[in-house]
Structure formats: C-alpha cells, structure tokens
Design a protein around this nucleic acid. Sequence first.
DNA 1: TCTGGGGTCCTAGGACCC
DNA 2: TCTGGGGTCCTAGGACCC
Length: 416
Amino acid sequence: MEKIIFHIDVNSAYLSWEAVYRLQQGDELDLRTIPSAVGGDPVKRHGIILAKSLPAKPYKIQTGESLMAAFQKCPFLTVVPPHYDLYLRSSNALIELIGEYSAQIQRYSIDECFVDFTDMVALFGDPIETAHVIRERIKRELGFTVSIGISSNKLLAKVASDLKKPDAVTTLFPEEIATKMWPLPVEELFMVGRATVPKLNFLGIETIGDLANYDLEVLKTALKSHGVLIWNYANGIENSDVKKSNRLAIKSIGNSSTIPFDIDNRREAHLMLLSLSEMVAMRLRDSQYLARLVSVSYKTHAFNSTGHQKKFEIPTDHTSEIYGYAKKLFDEIWDGTPIRHLGVRVSEFCENDFVQLHLFDEFTTQKNNRLDRVIDELRGRFEPKAIMRGSFIGSGIKPMTGGVGEDDFPLMSSIL
DNA sequence: TCTGGGGTCCTAGGACCC
DNA sequence: TCTGGGGTCCTAGGACCC
C-alpha cells in the first residue's frame, strides 16, 4: 500500500517565533511585516543572518551571509538577536499539536518534521483536508505559519513543502514529479549542494529533470555513491521509514565556537578547550553514553581548518579526561597560527553500564564520576555559573561554551 | 561582504595482518 | 630478495543538511 507522508516546515522559523513572542509580550510591531532578520553579534564575530522575514526577501538577504553584507543591501533592516530556548519551546509546542494527528513523527530539525499519516487516514479522512486543519490550527493556536508537503515518501513530501510558502499545503505524488519537480533547477534538490552543482552543470545537467533522465552509469563514475543517491532522488525514489526520534540514536556530541578574539597562545587555547569540554562532557553524561573517540578542530584567522582525533582504550564521560585528551590532541597539531574558532567532539559511543565504570582504575574513576555528577546536578539546579573554575575569571572566555542540552534530537543529514 | 554552530556520512590513503 | 592481493582499522578531510 502506498504510504501517506507529510513534511511540515515552519516558515522562517526563528523569525516567526521571535515575532510571535514579541507580540505576546505586548509589542505593537510584528517583525514579519517589515524587512527584518534574526542574526548574531558581529562584535563577537558571530555576525551572520540566521533567518529573515518575507519583506526582507526582495532585498536579496540570504541566510548565512554576514550582517554587514545584509545591511549593504538593506540599510534599514531590523536585526534581533537569537533566543534558542524560545525556539526549542516553540518547536515542542508544534510537535505536541501535530502529535494529536499521528504518533509517527520524526523530528528532522528544530523547525521540520515528517509525519506518517498512512494509518491515520481511516481515523481522520482525507489527508489534504486534514493537513489544512493542522495548518489552520497551528496558525490560530500557536500564531505562526507552516508549509505542509504531502506525498508517498519523505523526499517527495519535503520537496512538496518547499513548492509553496508560506501557509500552504502542497502535494507531490509520483505522477506529479515530471510537471512539478523536474522543471526546477538542480540545486533545489535535496543533497545537491555547493560542490555538486558545478560538477552536474559540467555534465550538462541544469534541472532536476536533466538529472533524472541522465545515464546512471556515467553519473556513478563521476560522483560515486552520491551520484546514485541524487539520481534516485531526482526520480522520486526514496523509501525510508518515518523514524520516531530517539535521542539515544545520536552518534556524536560536539561543541565549537568562534572566539571574539584570535587566540595566539597555548594558555588561552587550553582554557577555551576546557570551556568546550565542560559542555561536551555534561551533554555526554546526560546522554548516558561513554565515548571512545575524541576530536579537536580549529579554524585559523585565515579560515583554514585542521582537525585531529584519536581513539582511546577506555571509554569515558569525565570532564577531566575529555579535556585532557583534547588538550593533548591540540598540542600535537597546533603550530602557533592565530586561531579564530575551536571545537571539541566525542563519538564512538558505548552504553555507560554500571559494570564498565569500575573495570579499570576503580578509585579515580569513581571519584571523578561522583564529582562530575554533583557538578551536573548543581548546574542543573541553579545555573551553569554556579560552579565555575577559577582559571576563567578575567580571561574573557566563558566557563562553559556551546548549547543544546536535554531536548536535543538527532538531525539526519540524509533522509534514510 | 569576510564567512555560526549543531550534526551525519563518505572517501582516500596508510598501517598492519594473513 | 622481491613479489601479490585482500581485508580491516585508523585518521584526515570534505560534502551535505538545517
């Protein structure tokens, strides 16, 4: 039987949520009605556009571009800083509402989800009408708009939701592929990014239809497995299930940050690594995993990036050990070039079963373990700053760097 | 116009073993 | 001494997503 899949996408999510919140707080102005954007702080060198309003679109404001560039195009652009807590709460409210229509929901990102509606047709009736009911309810009850795509698989549903924005419901069933999807430029296809477009253009492929009808063998030679993937997508072939999101399915945990100033000495670099390790390790303990692989990466002032990683015999979730590894890895590769951006990531997880905790070095392990958990608890109960290492005072570096905690869910890079 | 931060997956080359 | 090929593990780097 053919499946019925919805893809639900919040229109200009960060900006919409910001606008709704401000209206609720009594603001007169609706950010969505003027050229506006959510953006970072240029002084801290985080200055890019994260989301833009519809009225900002005619000015060709692009997500990801620098605020400076945006102001050049639209000098009176209103830019507000991001509030990730608010976005997480808004996202949760959305998922809760959608949950009334199906239990089969895959959160794909903070502002997108897939819904398997196949078994719900018997209960709610026509999928298109139901999608409109959901769309209307979200607008009325939550105050923002969504675009809903409907098809028989996730890929087509996702493409469909993109066809009409904002506040719309669009179908893209297999028989509609040739008319609705094939005329689109190939860069609109999921998984065709910056690096692939020129390669496809070189082969004479300009539209999704060109790709769909191209010789698969030639494509395979030129683009390997990625070529096969996007050829299938161009033909609407994709058959993965809507997987209920499971936080324990996460494969890695990392935090990274652009430092407001270039770091040119080992001491400050280590302090920054400690700050990042604190957050990574806390999230790791919260995930109930131990990690075997620690990676460190950095970007230089000139934007060259380098990384180094190593597997360790004994899986851990201790802040002190992760920091120790990170520091060692960093020292092995850094040549003194001024650093703009630093990151720490852990992966290769195994369960943190009780047994594993005292296999080796019982005393230190248990001591470290208790210390980490007490700190986690205090930080959870009060605020992260409740426990702060003295070395950070006056350093210009925050005692913990990075975000995403309790409510994180895995974001898949490819629909599968 | 100097370009965030969170992820996943793939590939290529070298080491090592049989 | 020089020769072969296959498998697996490890690491760096890059492509893609939102």
